[in-house]
């Protein structure tokens, strides 16, 4: 009875792990099929779909948009978010919990609500169908991740180092550059990776703000999935899965290096 329960338990847990992993990874082999529909197991082996995607002007344009927007949003969110985290870490001030709540709330706001709200406001400001509009929108989504990540790493810093540096005659800027920043760098970098991935994967807001010229890779995928499922889309998905795996490894590397 006891043994039976144990077997049942581990079967359930293993099936859950497979349920988590398989649907995510199964797309990768499917992208190598020689058939024009998605098949599993894939029939034959070809890199044709990858060539087709990489050579297509609309995918290239979307890739360019995605890269520009994600880099810009990651930089903006990292600068603003790191500054905020430093201020929150070093100070106690009235209303601090409210400011903290404000900084983190984009994380829990339903993204469709943000999308339509930004659409209404940005259209009045001429930011719809521009890369800049997407950058601002994605920066909003990314700031909480940077704040959380930098706050976590500034808590690890010995609090007497900053006074020590100031006491030895260093200025505030010098202290920041030579003492604080190197110590919180793992948090800053992993926050930047989070911010980049947040923008890179974002689709709902982009659906509302982007047009045919400014559309990003996720918008292209969305359109493909809604119209025709072909192995080319699976090839894009496979590339993105590998890229996010690299991003995760990078972010964990930064965290470990602290």
């Amino acid at each position: 009875m006891d043994k039976l329960r144990r077997i049942f338990f581990w079967v359930v847990v293993s099936l859950t792990a497979l349920f988590l992993l398989l649907p995510t990874l199964i797309i990768v082999p499917m992208s190598f099929t020689t058939t024009s529909t998605l098949e599993f197991p894939p029939v034959g082996f070809t890199m044709e779909w990858y060539g087709k995607v990489i050579g297509a002007p609309d995918w290239q344009a979307a890739l360019m948009n995605s890269l520009v927007v994600a880099f810009a949003a990651a930089i903006l969110a990292t600068v603003i978010g790191t500054a905020a985290a430093l201020a929150l870490h070093a100070n106690r001030f009235p209303g601090k919990p409210i400011v903290m709540g404000l900084l983190l709330s984009p994380m829990v706001t339903p993204v469709i609500v943000l999308a339509v709200g930004m659409y209404m406001v940005f259209s009045g400001w001429g930011l719809v169908a521009t890369r800049l509009g997407l950058v601002f929108a994605h920066t909003v989504l990314a700031i909480p991740f940077v704040v959380v990540s930098v706050l976590a790493s500034s808590r690890m810093v010995n609090p007497s180092l900053v006074p020590a540096s100031l006491g030895l005659g260093a200025g505030h800027w010098f202290t920041f550059r030579r003492v604080t920043l190197p110590l919180i760098m793992p948090g800053v970098l992993s926050g930047a990776v989070f911010a980049f991935i947040t923008s890179w994967d974002e689709v709902v807001i982009a659906l509302f703000l982007a047009d045919a010229q400014t559309r990003t890779v996720p918008i292209m995928i969305w359109n493909q999935v809604r119209t025709n499922l072909d192995p080319a889309t699976a090839a894009v998905a496979a590339i993105l899965i590998v890229l996010s795996a690299l991003g995760v490894l990078l972010s964990y590397k930064f965290r470990e290096s602290r």
């Binding site: 995510t24 996720p218 991003g247």
Partner: peptide, 9 residues
């Protein structure tokens, strides 16, 4: 692994 692959994919 699935946590880091986008919801869309």
């Amino acid at each position: 692994i699935p946590f880091w692959v986008s919801l869309l994919l």
